[in-house]
Write a protein that binds this DNA or RNA. Structure first.
Lengths: 205, 205
DNA sequence: TTGACAAACGGAGATGTCTCCGCTTAAATA
DNA sequence: TATTTAAGCGGAGACATCTCCGTTTGTCAA
């Protein structure tokens, strides 16, 4: 089941649907050529031969546009995650969490630009909180489930940390700013980041 | 010792120094009246009766301006932290870390707007990484020291997590986006966030 | 005091995001 | 098919960040 659909309530008018395609095609082309960061909404509108107003009617900002472009890949990611979770349902939860993190980090590496585009705060002002991004909601839910399972499976040594909070912090560490900070400034390789995350969030007793 | 000074190498020309004061005064007034978020660099320039070029010559962006405005308060914070650390040097490190976090979170609550302004990504494009902000470097250093001390004081049960990494993740959780997410979306009170951070990063055995 | 010059000024304008609103048009309805 | 109407279009323009560069001015050395 696709979790990232944003199905329009009513079917689009024919011209609107065509414009949507023109936009996606133009964006894809420009992103490919100049990189997501270096392409402005204006450029996309020009390339698609439509007015800026039309562009913004379809996509409220570049983040939404990126989300649309990455949707299929995201669906694949979540399919992969579901498969992994099913195939490994007998593994201990900490192992599954690690696998889950690995899948996401791999995805992050492959789709770095678009995914960063999705996370972009859009306009400096009215930025919506993380919580509104379905991608991260979905991931967060999985983290919470696994963390709860881990907490339950281990002898409760101290008041169990709130899994929702812990998952939030973990998510933050996977977000663009944090992740690329680790990569580019600290110089950690992806696998190293994964290791450190596990050590940080799941210290073995 | 002040750690947040950005002392100009050469003394400013008299007119430049005066303009700097006009800018700070104007910014303070406007921030007070409309809130940091809702004040543009243009407004500040107008209020200070200078051109935009002059404003940008003094402060490359709003973040730097906020940093200047909050400097004195930050110095007080770090003085307070130093005092606290000295007075509690015999407490166990985890206790000191908790105290440190509490001091910072209190500061964050009191100076929310300006501190958020400091953290602002400035322009969506060329945002400099966290690592360039002296405030966070300073804090990060303290965290690393304490985490190292904690790791050393406890029986090494498993490969010790890299304190630098752990401190990075902890910092992320204290940053504007994450902190206000916890406050506004999750509805946690500051003291609750503190508790959760401790539980997450310093699980008792 | 005066002349030279680096520093500072300021505003026009490049570029970007995003909205508003009068006109156009696809498509549901009679 | 003709009519209606809401969805869609597109560009002007409000506002924001930030730069460039010709002009002005403080400062220092002579």
């Amino acid at each position: 089941m696709s979790k990232t659909d944003i199905t329009p309530v009513r079917t689009e008018r024919r011209d609107a649907a065509e414009n949507r395609q023109r936009i996606l095609k133009a964006a894809h082309k420009l992103f490919e050529e100049f990189g997501v960061e270096n392409v402005s909404m204006n450029q996309i509108a020009t390339e698609a031969e439509i007015g800026p107003g039309t562009l913004y009617r379809r996509f409220r900002n570049k983040s939404e546009l990126c989300q649309e472009l990455i949707k299929d890949h995201l669906d694949l990611l979540f399919d992969g995650i579901e498969t992994y979770m099913n195939e490994n349902r007998d593994e201990p939860p900490r192992e599954r969490l690690k696998g889950l993190l690995r899948l996401f980090i791999r995805f992050r590496e492959m789709k770095a630009q678009l995914l960063s585009g999705v996370e972009e705060s859009a306009s400096p002002a009215r930025k919506r909180p993380l919580s509104q991004n379905p991608v991260y909601n979905e991931l967060h839910k999985l983290f919470v489930e696994l963390l709860d399972e881990i907490a339950a499976s281990e002898p409760s040594r101290s008041p169990a940390p709130n899994s929702v909070f812990k998952a939030d912090v973990l998510m933050m560490a996977l977000l663009r700013d944090s992740y690329h900070f680790q990569r580019d400034v600290r110089g950690y390789a992806p696998e190293m980041i994964l290791e450190q995350l596990i050590l940080t969030f799941l210290p073995e007793e």
